[in-house]
């Protein structure tokens, strides 16, 4: 069963498990609009998140989608737009 919605909680879980957490960063805090880079995640980390998002939601995440997801909230919005548009 593919989920009908992708949440920030889902994303944080992915971030934690596939790239770890930088010292001094609290992913349980208000991080939705903080750029990934400021949370300590480089472009490689964001690519890792994309692969896991695709695996979990079925939304195709080609490498250039990185442009649509500068922050966690932007990433969640992008994935939900794709789900609603039936892109999977």
């Amino acid at each position: 069963m593919q989920p009908t919605e992708f949440t920030l909680t889902d994303l944080v879980e992915i971030m934690r498990s596939c790239a770890g957490v930088d010292e001094g960063v609290d992913l349980d805090g208000d991080i939705g609009d903080t750029p990934f880079a400021e949370l300590g995640y480089d472009s490689l980390a964001v690519l890792a998140f994309q692969a896991r998002i695709q695996e979990r939601t079925g939304v195709p995440m080609p490498d250039d989608t990185v442009a649509h997801m500068p922050t966690p909230n932007a990433a969640v919005d992008f994935v939900n737009q794709q789900i609603r548009a039936g892109v999977r």
Partner: peptide
């Protein structure tokens, strides 16, 4: 070891 680096 920093957790980010443990994973990476």
């Amino acid at each position: 070891v920093p957790s980010r680096l443990v994973v990476q």
